[in-house]
Each structure stands twice: as structure tokens, then as C-alpha cells.
Design a protein around this nucleic acid. Structure first.
Lengths: 153, 153
DNA sequence: GAAACTATATTGATCTTCGATCTAACTCTG
DNA sequence: CAGAGTTAGATCGAAGATCAATATAGTTTC
């Protein structure tokens, strides 16, 4: 089972890499959950609160208050959903988008400065892995990949 | 500036990948910060609270209470530091280690099931990237990479 | 051994989260 | 189209996490 070993090893490397890459947020006076909401809205585009319940790792009441705070802070906007009187469509404001973009740019810049110090061969290998990662994401969204049902209850 | 573009692209792919990979914890009734403390202790081995202040994204008082809770839960242990009467050495208990290991195993398993569906060539490319990631981590720890000083104040 | 420093604990205020419930709006069935 | 059931989201109260500021106790320096 050397294949298992290799995945093991990769998993560990990614875990360590993420300690560097994520550099757990803490910025902007926004909680981790709030940042995650902004990020999701940026990727998915406008969506409803209940869509976020599926993607975020917090429950609906917490999401309601997170969204309320983000709206007070002027980072997201809500407008009535024309198709469903109960729902609102949430979207990023320019300020909200700029926070997401800024964080993305910071990560890219840190990554760039590290990648610059790799050997040309390794640099090429790493940069060319993006497409494979995208495939993994694609596979994960196709396959079940439910929001982790096994947790107690 | 196509190099910048490539890093840009990789950064985005990693961000998306991490949404799949991390699957924000939520497990075991432990907060994200508490899990991070366990993970760090597992990687660094026994260390003092002030060492964790450097690696974790929370401030010392929050760390004190996180550590207190983890100790109450029997996941970490503290014994007096023989060299310094003010400090204690913190270390994982068997239970604490097993939570870290379990989470690692879960991630590896999910990753394995996704990697299995890649083409053999892509699978090989992805698995072989571990060493490059390790180098990045190494580079980051050499270079300054301070705990993100630019945040206000 | 007093002053300065360091490691951690405590305090009080604020924010986050959750479970349980509530309301309003939608959908269906007959 | 009425009433039953369902869904989207809000609210409430309690528990936990976080922070800034400060307190305490051990250490080092001169």
C-alpha cells in the first residue's frame, strides 16, 4: 500500500503548507466566519442566505447575525428576491469585494515571493498543478461530498 | 507579467481546493482555535503557552482559556517547566493526539478518494508535489514570515 | 535586593454560536 | 381557493470565545 503512503504524505504536506498559506485571517476586524461568507459570495455571486447555510460551517441563526453585521458594515447588500417574497438576494458591495480581493492579492504575493526561491523546475511543477487542483474541486462538487454528515446527532 | 498571472491562478486554485480540503472542522465540539492548538502541539511537540502565542491567531488571554478547556477535556497536559517556575510545558495526551490523527486520517481519506478519480498522469503529478510544498514551508520558516505585522495598530 | 522584565492568569465587555422556536410566504392537494 | 404542510429567515436566551487591560508571580540584571 504505497499509494496510501503517498496520499498520507501529501496530506501532511498540504496541512503544513496551509499553516503558511492561510496564515489564519484575523484581519480587518472580521471573524473567520464573516470572511468565509465574503469569500463564498465572491465565488458564487449573489445568493440567498439558505444557500450559504449549505456552504458555511455555521448554523442558520449565526449566519443571520453574521450577514446582519456585514450589511451594517457595508460589505454586503440585500435586495428582495423577486421570485420569493420570503428570501433576499445577498451580494457583495464594492467594499466587500475589495476586502476579498485584497486578501487574495496578499496570499498571491506571499506565495509569489516563496515560489521565486524555488528552482526553476520546481517552480514550473508547482505552477502547473493548478489545473489538477481545479479538477479535484470539480470532482468533489460532482460526487456527494455532503456537508460532512457523520458528525454526532 | 505572465508569471504573476500564473501565481494568481495557482492562488485561486489553492483557495478553492482548500474549501474542499479543510471542510472547516466543526467536529468534536472543539472550536477552530482549539483544533489549531492541538495541531500545533502535535507538530512542534511539547511547548509553552508563549510559544503558542506566536503560532496561533489568537491573543494570549484567549489562548489561556483555550488551553484550560483542553486540559479540562483531557486533551492536553501541563507539567511545570523545570527551567522556569512561571511557565508550564504543554503536551498532547493520548486522547489529544488521537483527535489530531483522526482528523488527519479523515482528510487523507477524502483526498485519496478524489485522487483516485484523476488520470494516472495527473495523479502522479499531484502526489509528487509534496516535496515542493515542503520546500515552500521550509523557505517560509527561514525567511522572516513574521505573524503578519501589517494589521493595524 | 530593587528595578525591570517575562510568563501566565484574571477581569469585564463584546461578539459568536447554538438550539429552539416563531412568523411570513410559498406550494400543494383536493 | 382553503387549509395543511413546507420553507426562508428572524428572534431569543444561554453558553462560549475573544480582546484589551491589568494583576500576579517568577526571573534577571546590576
Amino acid at each position: 500500500m504505497d499509494a496510501v503512503r503517498a496520499v498520507e504524505r501529501l496530506t501532511r504536506s498540504i496541512e503544513d503548507f496551509n499553516s503558511v498559506f492561510i496564515r489564519l485571517p484575523a484581519s480587518d476586524r472580521l471573524s473567520f466566519s464573516a470572511l468565509s461568507v465574503l469569500h463564498t459570495l465572491s465565488r458564487l455571486g449573489p445568493c440567498r442566505l439558505s444557500d450559504l447555510v449549505g456552504t458555511e460551517q455555521i448554523k442558520q441563526p449565526a449566519l443571520t447575525s453574521a450577514v446582519a453585521k456585514l450589511e451594517r458594515d457595508g460589505l454586503i447588500e440585500r435586495r428582495p428576491d423577486p421570485c420569493d417574497g420570503r428570501a433576499s438576494m445577498l451580494s457583495l458591495t464594492a467594499d466587500g469585494q475589495s476586502i476579498v480581493s485584497r486578501r487574495h492579492a496578499d496570499r498571491a504575493e506571499r506565495l509569489r515571493s516563496l515560489i521565486d526561491r524555488l528552482s526553476p523546475a520546481d517552480r514550473t511543477r508547482l505552477l502547473s498543478i493548478a489545473g489538477v487542483l481545479d479538477q479535484i474541486v470539480q470532482l468533489a462538487s460532482e460526487h456527494g461530498e455532503k456537508p460532512d454528515e457523520r458528525s454526532g446527532k
